[in-house]
Design a protein around this nucleic acid. Structure first.
Lengths: 229, 229
DNA sequence: AACAGATGCTGATAATTATCATATTTTTGT
DNA sequence: ACAAAAATATGATAATTATCAGCATCTGTT
């Protein structure tokens, strides 16, 4: 099969994820890869399911969640485009220790994990790039959690607002992709207190809120709250 | 140089870390490896230093810490024997994002990171085993932090007591290897409240304390506090 | 359009945790 | 061995956060 028929060839992510693969390997990937679109709210992976695929986001935004009791869940991380979403335990577990849910419309590309494992064993440069990327994502999660842990409620809210504004949307006005409850599940506080703190920020002229739309009005103050709150 | 002169050959960790290396590769490791002993309290790695080595503990206990302000530090993780202590960012950063400090006398074996990187590129099975092990350690850190985050003070203290009792010392009586302040830095609470909670556990007949020695008297109650507190 | 159910919002109160002050004990350095 | 510093301990109070209760608003469905 000629490579020109393989749409992975022209994929904008090829350079990011598979620059180290040979043409033959890319062709093999292409034959088996599975690209899927998910609507906001849909489950991409389910906690407890067997790990058969190696997935990454091509576009969109997802949350990694784990359930900690009947009613409660904890959000581990938000992954945007070009992130691995298969990470925790993918090479050391049999089943997913968390679920992945689209919080915006999301396109995911999946490879068979067995194939990726083979490439790791046979292609050292590919192995190295996988290690680098896994390492970067893990570090990110760990550091983010530590940063949140050391802050109080206002600091945590400031942190997450600035995360969406600076890292995800790169704009001071944006649509919050998550509910107040999801913020609460992420920062480890109650929904009521998340709402209360947002309202206080609004009253203090730091942000404007209309529904899901947030506008950061006083960036300096928000940065100070992130730093000291 | 005959392999018999190489003391890595007989190292009890060879099977764990380097089972996938060829004899030639092990000999190369052996020539350059650096095995060092550290007394309790000594720094093994310093935050900000360039990453030149790939380190793991042969025995002992260490803490991974990062400083978050002039006076405060955050403990990321406790690593016991056979753990990697080079992990966060080792393959994606130039400098260590955290320090590693011995909290018990510790023996560390270090390889040159450049050499490990070469093995990853040239020996796929070794690469795969490194990925598996890094993956496992990262997951552990992430999961531990999530478990702590979702608990209140008593639950957090119960969690860490049971961690030392069950995972590290495998005994209901043990010497706490860390100060109350270090526990506080790990679970994200104040030193006073850690002390207070330990005192309450003692008053409630859950544990006995004499200095650094802790004895778990009422395991059932402690498990319940871990679960619901 | 009407309804149900989720989500957002606010206040009052209770529970939890931090801060400050002070004393005692243990460890460290000389 | 001694003084100084650090760690442990406890109480009182302040600050922070959770819980509960009651409404309003939004969303999706029929």
């Amino acid at each position: 099969m000629p490579l020109s028929k393989c749409n992975c060839e022209g994929c904008e992510l090829k350079g990011l994820f598979f620059s180290e693969l040979t043409n033959d390997e890319i062709e093999a990937v292409c034959t088996w890869k599975d690209e899927r679109s998910y609507k906001k709210g849909e489950y991409i992976l389910r906690e407890g399911d067997p790990i058969k695929e190696f997935c990454y986001t091509k576009s969109g935004l997802v949350k990694l969640v784990r359930s900690v009791s009947d009613q409660e869940e904890q959000i581990i991380y938000f992954a945007s485009s070009l992130d691995f979403i298969s990470l925790l335990g993918i090479f050391s577990n049999d089943t997913y220790p968390y679920s992945v849910v689209a919080i915006e419309d999301t396109v995911v590309c999946s490879l068979r994990i067995s194939e990726v494992k083979t490439f790791i064993r046979t292609n050292g440069n590919f192995a190295f790039s996988v290690i680098q990327k896994l390492n970067r994502v893990s570090d990110n999660i760990i550091t983010t959690n530590l940063e949140i842990k050391r802050r109080r409620l206002p600091g945590r809210i400031a942190y997450i607002l600035l995360y969406f504004a600076n890292d995800i949307y790169k704009h001071t006005t944006f649509e919050l992709p998550v509910s107040r409850k999801e913020i609460a599940d992420f920062i480890g506080m109650t929904t009521e207190n998340v709402i209360r703190t947002l309202s206080e920020f609004r009253r203090d002229g730091i942000i404007k809120i209309s529904g899901k739309t947030i506008e950061i009005v006083d960036m300096d103050k928000l940065l100070k709250i992130k730093q000291f709150g």
